[in-house]
Design a protein around this nucleic acid. Structure first.
Lengths: 363, 363
DNA sequence: TTGAAAGCGCTAACAG
DNA sequence: CTGTTAGCGCTTTCAA
């Protein structure tokens, strides 16, 4: 019956108890058809009685693969990544893979360690959302060594031959900004983790596989403004570190410094929390005095007042696409890497309205 | 330099190239002090040149452990579980372990499969939040087989000899209900996933290791009401399935059917979204007409109006505790299993006030 | 249809 | 300090 020892019943024990050889027992247990039904039944029954559990480690040793996919992301409690993780998990599970996941907390050193450890554990493939701005040599080495690799959300410029899956950030910004322009806004502020850098941001073709999402979103804003014939004013671009508190401060600053701004586009889900809070505390009425577009659709977007208009990423699709591309790469190492830029979607709610629109007369 | 072949450079290749034996190479690479500095340096250099990556699978084969912890949870996009996961990941990483995570989507069959697969992969220990109400024989077998096992959030009654980590749900409810009673409320409704079952709920000592969280929270409500000399009325207990939409419906029903209710306690984070929305749409003014206490502290709790008062679980601590207990169990299989009931915390905001309190005169 | 033997890549005695 | 030997548990030829 149940055994208490640790590394307990092996296939040899089963074979002995069933009165067959190790190899026959193996064949019976893996459902090979090179065994007589009689012996198979016997072996299977004996195995169950003994509480035999096949040792996947030993099997991997021989087959050379682990049926395991690694995922390395900065933070699994971040809504975007946890949602992506969930859809990655489901997709690969349907193909018989498990998920080895590592959180880097934004530390380049931890990312290197994670990639190292996971590749030591011989994952069959790896999905990585690299730490922004960090060195990516370890990823290049990994890709060069033939490990299937898919980049998620953030590119690694120097790593070639690797698939990349992300929302189309330029288009996402265009959705937000065009919506605001369409409402009549002319002075539109932006809360961004990226620094305004004219050379990159105003480039004719900013490349999603070369720049981080925040940069692309800022570039999209610049493009949309420019295309509409509006002036991009540096003082309308509020830089914020990656935290809700920093975004709160940045938004407050933007409101104080540039009173002519009538709309704000906030380019990240974490930042949106702080931006919304800042607007609430500012004394401005939203959307009468200021319109706000957030990023990513949250549970709370329809719960706050005014309900928050957002640019929503297809988070599920991003996860599924990354997983499927990785599975393809595992099955066929020679396949061409692809860049998947998935479309964002504008969800219009109540936080955006024409400038100066006032249902309640201003005080 | 970099190799393109798949299972490429082994320790034998390194040994040959360095002109030493396999074992010396091994010793050098694992940093054993039984090697001369000279040979170690040489081996390490050669290994780097060849792009050698140790094969963790082979190592596990010998050592018998994988430095991997499995986690099986219903849904990693759920805020509670993703936060717990993040702190589990950090804790075990600090001890050199990686995380193999599996999402069961609430399906008992998937949970069985996950536990099976992870134990085949020879994880050194397992943290499981079992699917509610499902059969737990697979967990008992696992525990009996000597695998370190910690139960998270939900107990598995028939599985003995296993640690259990959870918030103290009865006390959590007491915090919420006592707060409301203290404000003067007498007719307090509850939104619960549990069915009201007098035998369990009113038991003198409802056991956290025998009943699911929702049952314990309901029991805590009953206890707190009873202790305060208030009547527990079945029509004040609104059952809801586990979704925001169901909670919306349950809350709406509760408001319509029992107008004497002046406060509602919502016993779960997912349900809180629906409850809050229902209150907004009901025409009731919160907190003037109805007070609301939510469960779990969300990003949005301070963002909505009124700001939501909640009972907050120490999610981080729960994750860390589960991880630490598991590490202990791995290190010492003979240690006594423990039940950790962690304290909840009441976060008082604006959604709770004395009944009938009216800053704005009723219409 | 079954068994015997080889070996995956590595570590761990045990000699030298 | 270093090399030799013997496996870990399993799959997989290759014979019988």
């Amino acid at each position: 019956m149940t055994r208490t020892a640790h590394q307990s019943v092996t296939i040899v024990d089963v074979a002995k108890a069933a009165g067959v050889s190790k190899s026959t027992a193996g064949r019976a247990l893996t459902g090979s058809d090179e065994v007589s039904a009689r012996t198979r039944d016997k072996v299977v029954r004996v195995a169950a009685e003994l509480g035999y559990r096949p040792n996947g480690v030993a099997r991997s040793m021989i087959t050379g693969n682990t049926e395991t996919v690694g995922v390395v992301i900065p933070d699994m409690s971040n809504r975007f990544f946890s949602a992506a993780l969930q859809s990655i998990a489901r997709t690969i599970r349907q193909h018989g893979y498990e998920l080895l996941v590592s959180s880097t907390e934004g530390e380049p050193a931890l990312e290197r360690r994670s990639v190292e450890v996971l590749s030591t554990k011989r994952v069959d493939g790896l999905i990585v959302a690299p730490v922004l701005g960090a060195d990516t040599d370890h990823l290049r080495r990994l890709a060069d060594s033939g490990t299937a690799l898919v980049l998620l959300d953030r590119p690694a410029p120097k790593v070639s031959g690797t698939s990349f899956v992300s929302v189309d950030n330029v288009e996402a910004s265009r959705l937000a900004v065009d919506h605001l322009i369409g409402l009549g806004h002319r002075h539109i502020g932006i809360i961004s983790e990226a620094r305004y850098d004219a050379t990159v941001t105003r480039a004719a073709e900013p490349s999603p596989t070369a720049h981080r999402p925040s940069t692309m979103r800022l570039a999209g804003y610049v493009r949309a403004m420019t295309d509409a014939g509006l002036e991009v004013r540096p003082e309308h671009i509020a830089h914020s570190a990656y935290s809700s508190a920093a975004s709160y401060a940045a938004t407050t600053r933007l409101l104080n410094v540039t009173p002519q701004v009538t709309a704000i586009y906030c380019t990240d889900n974490v930042l949106s929390v702080g931006a919304f809070a800042a607007l609430q505390d500012s004394g401005c009425h939203c959307p009468r005095d200021i319109s706000l577009v957030g990023f990513d659709d949250h549970d709370w977007a329809p719960l706050v007042r005014p309900r928050l208009t957002v640019v929503a990423q297809p988070t599920e699709v991003i996860g599924v696409t990354a997983a499927e591309d990785l599975l393809t790469a595992i099955a066929d190492p020679a396949r061409e890497p692809a860049t998947h830029l998935l479309p964002a979607r504008l969800v219009t709610r109540d936080s955006t309205a024409p400038p100066g629109l006032s249902l309640i007369p201003p005080t």
